[in-house]
Design a protein around this nucleic acid. Structure first.
Lengths: 301, 301
DNA sequence: CATGATGGATTAATAGGCCTTATGCATGCC
DNA sequence: GGCATGCATAAGGCCTATTAATCCATCATG
């Protein structure tokens, strides 16, 4: 059968001692006492069945067996050490962000460039998925998700509230002579009328929602799609304004009413609590929060 | 400074788990419980700062970081394992025998061939030195030495007694009309007259030793040299017959008197007690004792 | 749809190995 | 001769790795 490995602490002590030609020096390097090194080497010698060092008066010398063993061990540890070091900072080489499609295609797509410039050594992989992410099951570093913010074990940073309001193209609005009152919207096609947000908003606006139920369902499942449809003039979408600042700014989308509804959820940056100090995560967090303050803050104020 | 190595038990557990794609299997291989593997991997993940496995429903998968680490670790352990295995049997590859010159050049030189044939995979290195050997300080497996047999920590096997008797060439003996009585020897050159063996032997033979003291000292320090000198007819040497069986058999040396003296010492095969079961040592010991019984036994009887 | 089997996480408690302290021994140096 | 250096050894303590026990989720099954 395969020979079991020798006790690794013994191998470690021997390797250091071989490199230094001294038990005392090896002990220093390993942060232990000379006695411990002596003990471990004796253990290894017993396992090997041959002496590894010749004990000369004031120095130790490798035996032939020791001379053959030492380079292999040194090589092995250097392999481990390098791989480990690379993994620690190599873990910083790629930052994997999981986010909902809409955020990826809007805010993130426009702003990520700035992050890349600040952190040229960090590659960013963006994974878009609408699933609730489980950090234990997916190879993801940070995620941007909406929710109540109640996720045990996860660190979270508030980004913006999941507020929503109807939006449409100016052309579509003009087609019915402008949208003056909330009820006017019902004269237009409603994109994804089954979305509970519609019911909430209309209720907040004081408009009965009975009419909505009759509408054909046409859920596209992602705000980004609906926003595109709305910009193309296909109907009215109910969207989170914070996700479409530039579209709103240049008029591709208009939000006819100041009234925004809110289902209590918000968007958060989340990641495993335990990894809050991992450099690449810290870097992304700091940048994202600052960038948000800059891009949304002035506009939101 | 150089990054300290990750905890090796954790690396070990991780490597096995990565190879098996299963904590449970890894635990089996390592002879521990699944809980221990789980714990160790968690330790390593904390050190690395990134998850190494994705915990899927009924299996675990390596993350990207884990995928980069695993091959390096496997390689490293295989390096250690191979070197270790080679050292254990590679320790058997070379047998180092330390012996006095005379034994090396006589008995051993003639008989070692038989051992090589029996153990073709074993290389034998013969070191000749007259020093008392310290196994802790010299890279030697077994030694052949004379002495009282009182060496703590060493295993010893009796070879033959350090008996001695005068020897010379037949030609030299004829030059004085043959050696009839011990005192006749004093009419010939005595090789190394200061050797205490002469005094002992003459005393045993009933010959006064006063004459010896006056002789010029000319110690050559090794029986092999003196034997050569004796065979060349330069004088009478006092030698251990057991070391020169063939020379005595074919008449190159003659031992004129049956009287042999004995200083109480003997020749022994010795090696560290703790290594008595090392295969190559066991092989050499078994062969040497058997060969001795065969080569000296019949003759000595 | 309940049930059992599989595989991993978690917790607390344990045992044993590893390390330290203290000391001894041999050597080389001043 | 006395001191410094370097390794070996013995005894004892601590920490770490491990175990046992339990929980949880998933998947297969009847």
């Amino acid at each position: 059968m395969t020979l079991p490995l020798p006790p690794l602490p013994a191998v470690r002590a021997f390797e250091a001692a071989a490199r230094h030609g001294s038990f005392t020096k090896a002990a220093e390097e390993l942060g232990m006492t000379q006695a411990a090194v002596s003990y471990q080497i004796k253990v290894l010698e017993e396992r090997v069945g041959a002496p590894l060092f010749l004990r000369k008066p004031r120095q130790v010398t490798l035996t032939e067996v020791g001379q053959r063993l030492a380079p292999a061990f040194t090589e092995a540890f250097s392999l481990i050490g390098e791989a480990y070091a690379q993994a620690r900072s190599g873990a910083e080489g790629v930052l994997c962000v999981s986010t909902i499609l809409t955020f990826a295609s809007s805010w993130l797509a426009r702003n990520l460039g700035a992050f890349q410039v600040q952190h040229p050594s960090l590659a960013v992989r963006v994974d878009t998925s609408s699933r609730l992410i489980d950090f234990a099951r997916e190879d993801v570093d940070v995620a941007i998700r909406s929710g109540s913010g109640d996720w045990p074990g996860l660190a979270k940073h508030f980004l913006f509230k999941a507020e929503f309001s109807p939006m449409l193209s100016s052309k579509l609005a003009a087609s019915i002579g402008g949208v003056k009152a909330p009820a006017d919207l019902l004269r237009l096609p409603i994109l994804d009328p089954g979305d509970p947000w519609w019911r909430e908003w209309f209720t907040a606006a004081g408009v009965p929602t009975d009419a909505l139920a009759a509408r054909p369902r046409s859920s596209m499942g992602a705000q980004a799609y609906e926003a595109n449809a709305a910009m193309a003039g296909h109907g009215v979408a109910i969207l989170t304004g914070a996700l479409f600042p530039s579209e709103l700014a240049d008029g591709r989308l208009i939000q006819p009413f100041d009234l925004v509804a809110n289902d209590g959820n918000s968007y958060w940056l989340v990641y495993p609590e335990a990894r809050r100090n991992v450099p690449k995560i810290r870097a992304f967090r700091d940048w994202l929060l600052a960038a948000f303050a800059a891009s949304l803050g002035p506009q939101g104020a």
